[in-house]
Every structure is written in structure tokens, then in C-alpha cells.
């Protein structure tokens, strides 16, 4: 019998408490702001990890789910005056519903078709958002009402919301990995035919993974819209968001709980540094894609994989 309280759980709890105290002890608002965006990317990466890392179906359109969540919040708040705290989970549901529509024709097929369809999906949604002007405001985007608090309180509140979504995503991944569904997903990744032949309802399992995987980025998108107070199609349907999700996960270690967190923490810092060092459009993504190519060629199993194989350190 394993003890109920393990070292890992203690470490996780301590880290969570430290993160929760960041707004209290942070000398400048900048750090709170930075951490908030870091959680956002970690949520998208961890969401991607469920379908890409555990199941082995690489989604190239996670920006679509993020953008759908953002637009759900923006539209409901500005047009219908719904409270944003209700629209955040709704955005996640809209994203999951869309994942169902895309997943139905593509999850039955080989992985390459899924990759192609999801890649096209993100472009298609950006075009839709640009041209459904009566609903989405077209290229001019949507301005949301400013939150009723001063800037410091607002950032702190959004910080805690994003932190809880982040914690929820990680907890979901953690419990998913240890459940029968998680086992089934790993089976599908390693050998789909074998998984099917031992009676795993593969299509059903892939659907569960894909819907969960779309839900969390959708929620994060909604929070982002409220945080940024302005969204337009090129921002929230940016292909670079999909790229970040994939690369953060792979760098940390796809198919592990901690991988996307480690990957986001390191690479988000690097990309922000590149972005503010040389402020020319394209430069940060240029640097970033070189890192991505290097990871794929030389370290496809990520940090968690390397630690496990070379140093026998097992991270969850």
C-alpha cells in the first residue's frame, strides 16, 4: 500500500501555496501579470497534452479553442450583459462542443488527418471571426467593459481565477492519468489496433480526451478576453498559440503531468525575453521555432523523458 500522503503531493501543495502567495509578496504588478500569462499558456499546453501527449493525436488548432472561449465571453458580456464569471466555463463548453464537431469525422482516421483538419480549423475560425461582423465585430474586434475595480485588484482577482483553472487542469490530468480512461488513452497512443482488439472503445476514449483537451483552453480564452478587455481575430486565433501549446508540452515532456508545466515555465520566459529584447515583428517566433525544431530532432521526449531515462528521476 502506498501512503496517502507522498512526497510528491507535499511538494505540489507547497508549490501551490507559494504560487497563491505571489500577489501578496510580489514587489511589482509586473510579476503577477507575468505569472498569470504563464498559467494561461500552461493551461493551453496541459490541455493539448491530453489529446497530443497521452493519446498521440497531435492537434494543431488549439488556438481555435482558445479563441472560441475568448469570443464566447466577449460576445455574452457585451451583447447580453452576462456576468463574466458565468461565461468562463461556458466558453470551455463551446470549445468542447466544437471539438465534438471536428472530432466526429477526424478521430476515426489516422493521426495525420486529424492534424490536417485541426490545422485548417484554426484558419477557418479566424476567417469566420473576421467576417461574421454582426456577431464578432469583424476585424475591429470587441472591446469589453472594464472591470469595476482598480488595476491592481483586477489583476489580482484574475490571477487567482487563472491559478485555479491552472490547478484544475493539472488535477484533471493527474487523475486522468491514473484512471482507466488514461490507461486506455496511452494504449491508443502506443498501438491503436491492439487497443481496439482488447476491447477498448477507442473512438469513445479519443472523444473524451479531445473534449477535455478543448475545454480548458476554452476557459483560459474567456479569462484572457476579460483580462485583455479587447480581442480581435488575429490575437485570439493566432497560430502561434497552437505552436506554443505543442512546443511547451513537448519540451517539458508530452504525456506526463508535469511536462507541460515545466515546458511552459522555461520556454514562456525565454519567448518573453526574446520578445522584449528585439522588438521586430516575427523575431520572437523565429527564435522560438528554431528551439522547437531542435527539440523535435534532439529531445523528442522532453525534459521529463530525459530525466527518467538518463538520471532515473521519475516525475509524474
Amino acid at each position: 500500500m502506498k501512503p496517502a500522503v507522498t512526497l510528491g503531493k507535499v511538494v505540489a501543495a507547497v508549490i501551490f501555496i507559494i504560487l497563491a502567495l505571489v500577489p501578496v509578496f510580489s514587489p511589482e504588478l509586473f510579476y503577477v501579470d507575468f505569472m498569470l500569462l504563464l498559467y494561461m499558456y500552461a493551461v493551453i499546453a496541459a490541455g493539448w497534452n491530453i489529446i497530443g501527449g497521452y493519446t498521440g493525436y497531435y492537434c494543431f488548432g488549439h488556438t481555435a479553442f482558445f479563441g472560441l472561449g475568448a469570443y464566447t465571453t466577449a460576445i455574452l458580456v457585451t451583447k447580453l450583459g452576462v456576468s463574466p464569471f458565468i461565461t468562463f466555463p461556458l466558453g470551455g463548453l463551446v470549445a468542447a462542443a466544437f471539438a465534438f464537431v471536428i472530432g466526429y469525422p477526424t478521430l476515426r482516421l489516422k493521426g495525420a488527418y486529424f492534424a490536417i483538419a485541426t490545422l485548417s480549423l484554426s484558419f477557418a475560425l479566424q476567417i469566420l471571426a473576421l467576417n461574421l461582423t454582426p456577431i464578432t465585430g469583424g476585424g475591429e474586434g470587441i472591446s469589453l467593459p472594464l472591470p469595476p475595480w482598480d488595476i491592481e485588484t483586477t489583476i489580482t482577482i484574475i490571477y487567482y481565477i487563472m491559478l485555479s483553472v491552472f490547478a484544475a487542469t493539472i488535477a484533471t490530468t493527474y487523475f486522468l492519468e491514473r484512471s482507466r480512461v488514461g490507461l486506455a488513452l496511452k494504449c491508443i497512443r502506443d498501438n491503436e489496433l491492439a487497443a481496439e482488439s482488447v476491447g477498448i472503445p477507442t473512438t469513445m476514449m479519443k472523444f473524451i480526451a479531445f473534449l477535455l483537451s478543448a475545454f480548458f483552453p476554452g476557459v483560459a480564452g474567456g479569462i484572457f478576453a476579460y483580462y485583455a478587455t479587447y480581442i480581435d481575430p488575429p490575437t485570439v486565433f493566432n497560430p502561434s498559440i497552437s505552436m506554443f501549446a505543442i512546443v511547451f508540452s513537448m519540451f517539458g515532456g508530452a504525456g506526463s503531468v508535469t511536462g507541460p508545466i515545466i515546458g511552459s515555465a522555461i520556454l514562456f520566459t525565454v519567448s518573453q525575453a526574446a520578445r522584449y529584447t528585439i522588438v521586430v515583428p516575427g523575431f520572437d517566433l523565429m527564435v522560438f521555432s528554431v528551439i522547437a525544431i531542435a527539440i523535435i530532432l534532439f529531445m523528442p521526449k522532453g525534459i521529463v523523458g530525459v530525466l527518467r531515462e538518463k538520471y532515473r528521476i521519475r516525475l509524474p
Partner: peptide, 25 residues
């Protein structure tokens, strides 16, 4: 040639991102 299947797609996608942003830059 060093990767296969879905990894090749991922690699080429990253290469597309690299080229696109280098051209923008």
C-alpha cells in the same frame, strides 16, 4: 529523414512557422 509520420508533420509545421516569421522579420 530523421523523423517519421506525425513527428515529420510537426517538424515541418515548425519549419513553416520558422520560414513565415523569418520572412515577416
Amino acid at each position: 529523414s530523421r523523423v517519421a509520420g506525425l513527428m515529420a508533420f510537426t517538424l515541418l509545421y515548425m519549419m513553416a512557422m520558422f520560414l513565415e516569421n523569418t520572412m515577416i522579420f
